[in-house]
Design a protein around this nucleic acid. Structure first.
Lengths: 357, 357
DNA sequence: TTGAAAGCGGTACCAT
DNA sequence: ATGGTACCGCTTTCAA
């Protein structure tokens, strides 16, 4: 029961003060770097601290200052290169500002996300960066902001939440690639996303609760309608939550009598599986099916053919979110800022004209 | 609306106690889930807490219990798919055990790593999982363990540190692929790693301070010597720390009069750049140069040709490290365990026989 | 410039 | 079973 050998080791300001022959308050002043202290005392305390191997107990400090020096980050899945890159952006910026990051994966599960926020609130983080799983289910986030905690939404906004938000111009990007595909003669264009619906089928854009993806699908559907293509909803496939599901969905789709001539993948992990399924089925990209993917994952340029992608400023998405948060930490009271970062279509060789029937 | 919607939503046990009409100690018992309380009181306190939106201040709790409920994780670069997958393994396990993860990137820089450990110690993390940048420079780690903090080494061991360690059988893997290459007639085999040396050139295996990589190079060199190949040290290239450097190194190497007929890439990011450089230079894999890579990144199977790789149990590496840590948290005093996880060579199509001169 | 003492929000020991 | 209260380690008045 007594494995508190680490506790025994903890040297406190009182210890340092005693050794330096000053009061606790004075020692605390130099150790904490605040208040006014004479040089002589400062040196005495400093050396005493070094000798004793004193180390500030940030927990105790946080108790009194009310600031924990850490910010909470909740993402869908750190394993997804999109998020790992965004998190890199966050940690880089945030560390420069003197904060640490508590990272939690939500697995895109709303209950896990709620629990994560609760945990983070209990840990008294100074701020929150979240990529919300569902933008219509944000009461836990509202509760967080209501208690005065700075919150920045990453990659996915929410109309219900008037907070700092950093997203990419997903709709615009989707419109771009859809237009391109239609111009090439494609009429059967599928959109595959990890977002899921209760019955695993897509009905309307309102079914999609992930902001970024909803905007993309809206763009896709919008351009289709503009071009006189109707009922394109049936080409939207949801629930590609993992490689296995993705394979199943894509395989089914490609083997059905009505198969798409072009596919838009909502992220690079999906594009990868699409690629694999094609090879397995003996289908050629782009001869049989054209492929465009969101997220310019580093490997997309080395496949055969290299994949045409929507390049999102992923690192910057994270870095910007972090910047907004740090700014707000230094100066609350500004109005919520919504930053939309530009995307860019990188044309490679995975799309071509559809064969005219 | 009411006063509780203040900036700091700090409802304390005292507040709850007052509202429930019990003492602070009693309220604390039910709120903290310890001690014995009557059902009537429990309910009173619970509802009072709900009404007041009480939320435990984990900081305060940590102060008295001495446990923070969070563990520190220091990796080279979360952007590297190897680490992001390992971190996923860590977070999954650790969360189940009720801990959160504070993540810090070292950028493989020893000073940053030191600072990270210092920060983590100040935050009073309950344990540490670290992928040390240099295994001969571990005083900061020693200091951590000396103060009784459980530490688990991830992917890279250190003889100087008698602590729980989880690594892959890198040497064995390197021996395997080297043997395979030699059997195919290769005599000029290059090994490219991100690890760097002061003069950016490789002299002896002792120059390499990253345990996993040193073991691999030792295996590589050992098998070469066994096969009668000497002076293979000149084929080891260090300092491929980022895509740009990697391109430079690989381009130089491939354009030199003595160019390798086979290359072993120390991670998937390096393999990717090697792939790109070959295409740019008009060289064919495997006709001109054979390629083997460590880390079975998901995309390595879809390139043309698909890449032969050493599959490491990356997720498991992280998950196992986390398990060891959690076990030790529950029961210190065991002796240090060294776990070596099996790797496997996945044969694909990026290597072939060397042309006999 | 320095010191004494009152918190911060819990936990835990000791009474009752 | 419940209450009173002394801490935990640091910051922060308020006096001296």
């Amino acid at each position: 029961m007594d494995k508190s050998s680490n506790k025994a080791n903890s040297v406190t300001v009182a210890d340092v003060a005693r050794k330096a022959g000053v009061s606790k308050a004075t020692a605390a002043r130099v150790l904490g770097g605040y208040g006014i202290v004479s040089d002589r005392v400062r040196e005495a305390v400093t050396t005493a601290a070094r000798l004793l191997e004193y180390r500030t107990n940030e927990l105790a400090r946080s108790m009194t200052t009310g600031r924990s020096g850490s910010i909470g980050v909740v993402v869908g899945d750190i394993e997804n290169p999109f998020f790992s890159l965004a998190v890199r952006g966050i940690t880089d910026i945030v560390r420069k500002a003197g904060f640490t990051v508590i990272l939690i994966n939500s697995g895109e599960d709303i209950d896990t996300e709620r629990a994560a926020v609760r945990t983070l609130l209990s840990k008294r983080v100074d701020g929150l960066i979240i990529s919300p799983a569902k933008d219509n289910d944000v009461e836990h986030l509202q509760e967080a902001t209501r208690s005065g905690l700075p919150l920045v939404l990453l990659d996915r906004g929410s109309e219900a939440l008037d907070v700092d938000t950093v997203i990419a111009d997903d709709r615009h990007a989707a419109e771009n690639v859809t237009r391109k595909l239609i111009r090439l003669g494609h009429r059967h264009i599928a959109y595959v996303t990890a977002c899921d619906t209760p019955d695993h089928r897509f009905h309307t854009v309102e079914d999609i609760n992930t902001g970024s993806v909803r905007r993309r699908i809206a763009g896709f559907l919008g351009v289709c309608a503009e071009a006189g293509l109707s009922g394109m909803e049936r080409w939207v496939r949801v629930g590609a939550v993992n490689p296995e599901q993705t394979r199943r969905i894509v395989t089914d789709m490609l083997q059905s009598p009505q198969r798409p001539t072009a596919i838009i993948a909502s992220d690079s992990m999906i594009a990868l599986e699409i690629f694999k399924v094609h090879r397995q089925l003996g289908l050629s990209i782009p001869d049989d099916v054209s492929l465009v993917s969101f997220h310019d994952a580093d490997w997309t340029s080395v496949t055969s053919p290299p994949i045409t992608v929507v390049r999102q400023p992923v690192y910057n998405l994270g870095a910007t979110a972090a910047k907004l948060l740090v700014e707000r930490l230094n100066d609350a009271g500004q109005t919520a800022r919504k930053v939309v970062l530009r995307t860019e279509v990188v044309e490679r060789a995975s799309i071509r004209e559809a064969e005219r029937p």
